[in-house]
């Protein structure tokens, strides 16, 4: 059986049937996609099948991304690509200025065929300095980050308990991990999940 990576390669190389096959296997969602074996890469080295940076422009199904290290990446989104922006979204939610991480398969022409693209995703730890309305004021390494509760989207995970939309148990001075979506060019984040040890 062909791997999802093989299917992605085929999709980018123009094998339309392979795109259908990939979809028939189910979404190229991250949890499933990671079951495939990635080629060996030297530990400690940059992963060529991974990219980070901010979107400079979008043309058809391609993202032109400027890496934070000033290296450009061309990222191709195909039918089976999963996109995340505070939750699963469609390609139309990608905007110039968005930060991203992407994982896929680096093609011989230098294009990254994307399995997954995470838009504006951040995962920060810190302690809660204040809570005002629906906003947590997080001290993250000495910098304040305003973390907004988004009704219907934000959940809290208290250790092994199931995720809950009730965030009222969060307290000032508590240490938490916040996974969310950064609002570009601000110190603000929309909360997807708050992880709390207690």
């Amino acid at each position: 059986m062909r791997s999802r990576r093989d299917l992605l390669k085929s999709a980018v190389l123009g094998g339309g049937a392979s795109v259908v096959a990939a979809t028939a296997l189910g979404s190229l969602g991250p949890e499933a996609a990671f079951a495939t074996t990635a080629p060996d890469i030297e530990p400690g080295a940059p992963d060529p099948n991974f990219a980070e940076g901010r979107i400079r422009s979008i043309k058809e199904n391609t993202l032109l991304v400027l890496g934070s290290n000033m290296v450009f990446h061309t990222i191709r989104v195909v039918d089976g690509t999963s996109l995340w922006k505070l939750g699963p979204v469609g390609f139309d939610q990608a905007q110039p200025g968005d930060g991203l991480y992407a994982r896929g398969v680096l093609m011989p022409d230098g294009v990254l065929a994307a399995e997954s693209v995470w838009l504006n995703i951040v995962n920060i730890k810190g302690h809660i300095k204040n809570i005002t309305g629906r906003t947590l004021h997080l001290d993250h390494s000495g910098h304040e980050v305003l973390c907004h509760v988004v009704p219907g989207k934000s959940v809290a995970v208290h250790s092994e308990s199931p995720p809950t939309t009730d965030l009222s148990m969060l307290k000032v001075s508590q240490h938490v991990q916040i996974l969310g979506a950064w609002r570009p060019d601000t110190n603000e984040v929309d909360i997807a999940t708050v992880f709390s040890p207690h």
Partner: peptide, 29 residues
């Protein structure tokens, strides 16, 4: 869990290259 390091965007832009001075979000570290 995961953390960002090295040159980066957003809240990660201030974190630096870690205690070993080599850390980058795009590296297997």
């Amino acid at each position: 869990s995961w953390f960002c390091c090295g040159t980066a965007w957003g809240p990660c832009s201030t974190v630096g290259k870690g205690a070993c001075g080599t850390c980058n979000s795009g590296n297997l570290q």
